[in-house]
Computed example of a mutant assay.
Amino acid sequence: MAVYTEVAPEAAQALLNHLNLGTLQSLRGIQGGIENTNYFATTDQGEYVLTLFERLTAEQLPFYLRLVKHLAAAGIPVPEPQADAQGQLLHSLHGKPAAVVVKLAGQSQLAPQAIHCAQLGRVLAQMHLAARSFDMQQPNLRGLDWWNDTVPAVLPYLQAPQQELLRRELAFQNELAASASYRALPASAVHADLFRDNAMFEGERLSGVFDFYFAGVDTWLFDLCVAINDWCIDLATGELDTPRVNALLRAYQQVRPLTAEEQALYPALLRAAALRFWISRLWDCHLPRQASMLQPHDPTHFERVLRARIARPGAITAEHGFATP
């Protein structure tokens, strides 16, 4: 989250009036993240998050908003988008698409332990199963096609060893995506960005998952690996923390057991998840947009994560309870 477009209280109040959400008491820009303009908006009726979309178009956004509405109806703890009198979830502010969602209670757990990872795994599996009945289609806009388009733009900023790693891993992932085993993986609309700062806890209880604006149709295994690569690692080294991984995987599989194809491709999809965020952080670092409060993430973190996943595929598979292919 960041602030690219300044929103005056009067403008926010006009939108809140349109949604019948009460009188604005405070409006505060949210620091962190990189894609959209976000504010906390507190009214006499409740607490909300106001988002202005800086890259996503009005044509793309119904997918995200309707997905969250669908998950909320299935009992998944997500920040439900607020509709106007005509039932519309997508609105406009300062000439940009906008949405207002309920603010989740609690706070992010930035040092998750096994108990937090287990709850995340259970809810993630429930989200995947609930999304099977969501009938809108939109590809993961930060998926393989975007990787292929973006890598040439960031390569000039890298040293030779990084360039070689990036080219080699991209070739590996293209070959993997063309394989029959990859095409057999179950898929639906997925979150695709479920980092520890995109979930909220009240004490040790998971109170909700939010920020679905990278969601798209992709494999469930990729979505699971994105979460594992953030929730279950040592941030300093990028190495996986086996107790946390196993807690997350056990809880996930109690709801939805992984298929044989998923177990076989698990190490490769951990690499894919690391590659996706290395590329996007390189993009944001070297080709940034201007924004108030913008703080790009360090791309070298996911370079470390990717190197760690490449180095130990057999050990990862065995330590996490799967048979080595």
Score class of each variant (00 low, 15 high):
residue 2 A to V: 15
residue 4 Y to G: 08
residue 5 T to M: 04
residue 7 V to I: 15
residue 10 E to R: 11
residue 12 A to W: 07
residue 14 A to F: 01
residue 19 L to E: 01
residue 24 L to Q: 05
residue 24 L to D: 04
residue 29 G to I: 10
residue 31 Q to Y: 08
residue 40 F to Q: 05
residue 42 T to P: 02
residue 43 T to W: 01
residue 45 Q to L: 11
residue 46 G to P: 08
residue 49 V to Y: 01
residue 52 L to K: 00
residue 54 E to F: 02
residue 55 R to Y: 06
residue 56 L to W: 07
residue 60 Q to W: 04
residue 72 A to Y: 07
residue 73 A to Q: 13
residue 73 A to N: 11
residue 75 G to C: 07
residue 86 Q to E: 11
residue 86 Q to S: 10
residue 93 L to C: 01
residue 94 H to L: 15
residue 99 A to G: 00
residue 101 V to Q: 00
residue 102 V to W: 00
residue 105 A to V: 15
residue 106 G to E: 03
residue 112 P to Q: 04
residue 114 A to E: 12
residue 115 I to K: 10
residue 116 H to A: 13
residue 118 A to T: 13
residue 120 L to A: 15
residue 121 G to T: 11
residue 124 L to W: 05
residue 124 L to S: 09
residue 128 H to A: 02
residue 131 A to I: 06
residue 133 S to L: 12
residue 133 S to T: 15
residue 138 Q to A: 14
residue 139 P to L: 10
residue 141 L to R: 11
residue 142 R to I: 13
residue 145 D to V: 15
residue 165 L to V: 09
residue 169 E to Y: 03
residue 169 E to M: 12
residue 176 L to Q: 06
residue 177 A to V: 11
residue 177 A to T: 09
residue 183 R to I: 06
residue 183 R to F: 01
residue 184 A to L: 12
residue 186 P to C: 07
residue 190 V to G: 02
residue 194 L to I: 13
residue 195 F to L: 08
residue 198 N to A: 07
residue 199 A to C: 15
residue 201 F to G: 10
residue 203 G to R: 13
residue 205 R to K: 12
residue 208 G to D: 03
residue 212 F to A: 05
residue 214 F to L: 11
residue 215 A to K: 01
residue 221 L to F: 02
residue 221 L to A: 04
residue 224 L to S: 01
residue 229 N to Q: 02
residue 229 N to E: 00
residue 230 D to K: 07
residue 231 W to S: 05
residue 237 T to H: 10
residue 242 T to D: 11
residue 242 T to K: 13
residue 244 R to S: 12
residue 247 A to G: 06
residue 248 L to I: 09
residue 250 R to E: 11
residue 264 A to W: 01
residue 266 Y to W: 09
residue 268 A to S: 12
residue 272 A to K: 07
residue 275 L to W: 03
residue 277 F to C: 09
residue 289 R to W: 03
residue 290 Q to W: 09
residue 291 A to G: 10
residue 296 P to G: 06
residue 296 P to M: 11
residue 298 D to F: 02
residue 298 D to C: 05
residue 299 P to L: 14
residue 299 P to I: 15
residue 301 H to D: 06
residue 302 F to D: 09
residue 303 E to N: 05
residue 305 V to S: 04
residue 307 R to H: 00
residue 308 A to E: 08
residue 309 R to P: 07
residue 312 R to L: 09
residue 314 G to S: 10
residue 316 I to L: 15
residue 322 F to R: 07
residue 325 P to H: 10
